[in-house]
């Protein structure tokens, strides 16, 4: 059983699916919070993810060249998080805030424009070519391999995948704490629930919006760095490639529901990877070229069947 099915399935489809799902989940958290609290689909979110990864790489390269340090990506990501939160603040102040009271579609349009502005800026600064993020071949974790190998269920998971899965668990737990136990987190849920009521309750909505950009920005940089760690390189189109699966994850989980976004991300990530498993016969069920179509199909089905998502989020 394990030889014929499990080994290949778990190591080459299931685990990569979960890893991809973690990355989608982190990105989708920001999208769903923005959608819930600021009430618009932020098309620039993927680009912030991508830029965060580029900045992280630059910090690693600079500290390497200047001080000879070999910074771990997660350490280098910390200053990058601050920078990207600043980017979100600036973008919000100058390009989104003028449309707070205008029809939503204006700010969606502005965010669509920002998507291209941010991407062009990255292409000007870093050039359009791929950059190697981490060198070398990722070897499977030897401890897990030996341990599971002795039980005749050899599992091959590279350390980078443990890092991504572990990191996602920690971030989601922190987010859970923030939303359940802190004043600002509860206020974020309140605004997401009803912005009008929040206003007449005296909640300072602008403070909540800033908190949203902070949380969304931190999760976006984490997602970008994890993605770069996984594929071991940087591309200026990687943010845009993530955008559709992340929207799909947010809609699947229910708009304004961070846990829904996490679940949605995992489902989309798994579905994309498992779609190319040879379920019937020897050929992949779906040609890997169509992988990114899976997210879209799930999203469309969800919009037909249940637009409010699994966790019954908002519909507009």
């Amino acid at each position: 059983m394990w030889e014929s099915f499990g080994f290949e399935f778990v190591n080459f489809y299931f685990v990569p699916g979960i890893v991809l799902g973690c990355i989608y989940a982190l990105g989708a958290i920001g999208i769903t919070l923005t959608f819930g609290i600021l009430r618009f689909a932020n098309f620039a979110h993927g680009e912030v993810m991508m830029t965060g990864a580029y900045v992280t790489w630059t910090i690693m390269a600079l500290t390497g060249a200047l001080f000879g340090w070999a910074l771990h990506p997660l350490i280098a990501a910390i200053p990058s998080v601050f920078l990207m939160i600043l980017v979100f603040f600036v973008v919000d102040r100058f390009f989104y805030k003028p449309f707070r009271k205008a029809p939503t579609i204006k700010v969606v349009m502005a965010s669509f424009g920002m998507m291209l502005v941010i991407r062009s800026l990255v292409q000007i600064l870093w050039g359009p070519n791929q950059i190697t993020f981490v060198k070398g071949i990722a070897k499977p974790n030897s401890f897990i391999r030996e341990l599971t190998g002795s039980m005749d269920m050899m599992i091959l998971v590279p350390n980078k995948h443990f890092l991504i899965m572990g990191g996602t668990v920690v971030i989601v737990m922190l987010l859970g704490y923030l939303l359940t136990y802190t004043r600002i987190g509860k206020a974020m849920r309140a605004v997401s629930d009803s912005p009008d009521l929040a206003l007449v309750t005296g909640i300072d909505v602008e403070v909540v919006i800033r908190a949203t950009w902070i949380v969304g920005g931190a999760c976006a940089v984490a997602a970008g760095v994890f993605l770069a760690t996984d594929i071991q390189m940087l591309e200026t189109t990687m943010g845009f490639r993530m955008l559709l699966p992340m929207f799909a994850a947010a809609i699947l989980g229910g708009i304004g529901k961070p846990y829904g976004a996490v679940l949605g991300g995992l489902v989309i990530g798994l579905a994309e990877e498992l779609s190319s498993y040879p379920w019937i016969g020897d050929a992949p069920l779906l040609s890997p070229g169509y992988k990114s179509g899976v997210a879209f199909s799930i999203m469309i089905v969800m919009l037909i069947v249940r637009p409010s998502g699994i966790f019954k989020g908002r519909t507009f």
Partner: peptide
């Protein structure tokens, strides 16, 4: 037929998605 009854954001996401799918089909 699928998206127009929903709010404009959804149509935006769906149209950007369909454009990607069309590209995939043409490429593959």
């Amino acid at each position: 037929v699928i998206c127009i009854r929903l709010r404009s954001d959804y149509l935006a996401i769906a149209t950007i998605g369909i454009a990607e799918i069309i590209k995939l089909v043409l490429k593959n």
